[in-house]
Design a binder for these strands. Structure first.
Length: 567
RNA sequence: CGGGGUGUAGCUCAGUAUGGUUAGAGUACCUGGUUUGGGACCAGGGGGCCGAAGGUUCGAGUCCUUUCACCCCGACCA
């Protein structure tokens, strides 16, 4: 492509609302423009990067036997009613009616559509397993889109759906897809981690997220310093604490604790480690048609993890409560303890199940219990893992220590089981001629988000640094002075040679000065720029390496060979 | 959906407290000239329904009302 004719509207200044490097540089370098909140135009450079990512995905999917399809973007609302998700998805589903007044939604994910496609077409175990995928625009009417391509309302997602006759076969496919996804991210040159994820509302027996490591990531992940264990903080587990602080020895007793309401105050008052205190977090748990106040108890040194609380209560939603609401139930904020269980539902963290020597609220003003042995509750109370792991906690798989890092979720793979096939009555006949619901897996990967993720990991102060696998153009030929006939002649012949060799090549043939064109090349981030300039009179040109920012002199008659060696 | 902020040239922003010629700057763009190794310089030029609608006024970018959009914090996010 000739730079002079290319539609690459670069700017010196970023849109004022851009905060992330990927948003700033993809905007400044002319890859994308914003249309409305969460909606972006992909310009030629972005389109080329997307196509490269898609090609890699297609290659890796072919290797594991997944077949590409493309389902319609506009999907009948009836299907969503059939699965029950038209309620669950809520306002994120963009709904509209056609001229005949039929209700449709723009597909935010395609489980229903894919099951509908397969049901009654695949009817025998002999035709399983089956893995179908597509790379397609999705639409989710997010309450708050942000960060450019990172969290748009309209975005490109690769979504695969597998159908199996047995759980063992689903397990095999799940592992194969995980391996394929790792391969894709590795080829894209990304530093990533596969982590345990919260399967949450979608259910099923397991899910993993593929996290690209980046400080700008929206997710917190806990990773082990020693082994491969990694988990989204929403799902992270831990081993029991090793270095347990010295226990405060005390007989069970009620103790006057005037105005001591917080864990910090309590620990200070009794001179004990917060480990031996019981923290109460009160929340209103919302179910399908009612709601109630639930008291969650964790150790004073821990915090409630809301995703876990969700799972422990089958909640649709969890919202904060006011002190007034608690008072109405006869609860005393600041002094709520787990020993009095008739005022509200309790969920107690499993780490407290047999905890002794504890200090907890006495459910009356200015009083706490000391010397509490939680095991007295083990018969009657509901225990669940609801505490958030802390940095420094012990890995659940080994004796390593958990550390936190930020990640961008670029992939999420689920073992769905029969949730959707049962809801949509999609069955096959097994060896015994018996109808069985398909056992399913689903595997998502955010393609447009990957574009942003690559830039998040590969940029410097001057712009993008594309890897060879992702670069819109790998080589940029920069003619320093367009009025110099020798420079133009060499540039043009190299351009022709590289094109013949099927190299993605750009030639900067604009009538601009050296510095201007260099800045532009750095902003866009071509891996290599061949500088044809003033050294040509001495028979030399240079290759500028975007990543190292080093320039290497090359004999002008060797330049084609040298470039080909680099690729 | 709660709380806050901003809408003026393609982009980044002044101007709005206190209404008053023809609405500005930088950048980008066009023409000519000089320049040509790190976002050049000089001269000339094009570009605006001041987010939209209504109102107050002799007069509104500026004041009032309504509304829309975008952004930020939070909630939300198979």
């Amino acid at each position: 492509m000739r730079r002079s004719k290319a539609f690459i509207p670069t700017t010196k200044e970023a849109p004022s609302d851009a905060q992330l490097a990927s948003h700033i540089f993809l905007s400044r370098a002319g890859f994308v423009t914003q249309v409305a909140s969460g909606l972006y135009n992909y310009l030629p450079l972005a389109k080329r990067v997307i196509r490269k990512i898609e090609n890699i995905i297609n290659e890796e999917m072919a290797k594991v036997g997944a077949q590409e399809v493309e389902l319609s973007f506009v999907t009948p609302a009836d299907l969503w009613a059939e699965s029950g998700r038209i309620e669950k998805f809520g306002k994120e589903l963009l709904r509209f009616k056609d001229r005949k007044n039929n209700l449709f939604v723009l597909g935010p994910t395609h489980e229903e559509m894919m099951v509908d496609l397969v049901r009654n077409r695949v009817t025998s175990y002999k035709n399983l397993p089956l893995n179908l995928y597509q790379i397609k625009t999705k639409f989710r009417d997010e309450a708050r889109p942000r960060f450019g391509l990172m969290r748009g309302r309209e975005f490109i997602m690769k979504d695969a759906y597998s159908f199996h006759a047995s759980n063992e076969d689903l397990d095999r496919e799940f592992d194969a897809m995980e391996a394929a996804y790792k391969k894709i991210l590795t080829r894209l040159g990304l530093d990533f981690r596969v982590v345990e994820a919260d399967s949450g509302a979608i259910g099923g027996s397991g899910s993993k997220e593929l996290m690209v490591i980046a400080d700008s990531g929206e997710d917190t992940i806990a990773v082990c310093s020693k082994c491969e264990y990694g988990a989204n903080i929403e799902a992270a587990k831990r081993s029991a604490r090793g270095n347990i602080p010295e226990a405060p020895e005390a007989e069970f007793n009620k103790f006057l604790t005037p105005n001591i309401k917080t864990i910090d105050e309590l620990a200070e008052f009794f001179k004990v480690d917060a480990y031996y205190t019981v923290k109460c977090v009160a929340k209103r748990v919302v179910y399908a048609d009612e709601s109630e106040i639930v008291l969650f108890f964790v150790r004073g040194c821990d915090n409630l993890q809301e995703a876990k609380a969700h799972n422990a209560t089958d909640a649709l939603d969890i919202v904060d409560v006011t002190e007034e609401e608690l008072a109405e139930l006869g609860l005393v904020p600041g002094f709520i303890g787990p020993l009095d269980q008739d005022k509200a539902k309790h969920v107690i963290d499993s780490d407290l199940k047999n905890a002794a020597h504890m200090i907890c609220g006495a459910n009356e003003v200015d009083n706490h219990f000391v010397g509490v042995d939680m095991s007295v509750l083990s018969e009657t109370a509901y225990f669940a893992d609801i505490a958030e792991v802390n940095e420094g906690d012990i890995c659940p798989d080994c004796d390593g220590v958990l550390t936190f890092t930020k990640g961008i979720e670029v992939g999420h793979i689920f073992k769905l089981g029969t949730t959707y096939s049962e809801a949509l009555n999609a069955k096959f006949l097994d060896e015994n001629g018996k109808a069985q619901p398909f056992i399913m897996g689903t595997y998502g990967m955010g393609v447009s988000r990957l574009v942003a993720a690559v830039v998040e990991q590969h940029h410097d102060d001057n712009g993008c640094i594309w890897t060879k696998e992702t670069a819109p153009y790998i080589v940029n030929i920069m003619i320093s002075n367009i009025k110099d006939e020798a420079q133009v002649a060499l540039g043009e012949s190299l351009y022709a040679q590289l094109q013949d060799a099927n190299v993605d090549v750009m030639i900067d043939d604009r009538k601009e000065r050296f510095g201007f064109k260099m800045k532009d090349a750095e902003l866009i981030g071509f891996p290599y720029t061949v500088i044809i300039g003033k050294e040509l009179v001495n028979g030399e040109v240079q290759i500028f390496d975007r990543k190292s920012t080093e320039k290497t002199a090359v004999k002008s008659d060797m330049i084609f060979t040298k470039v080909m060696e680099l690729l």
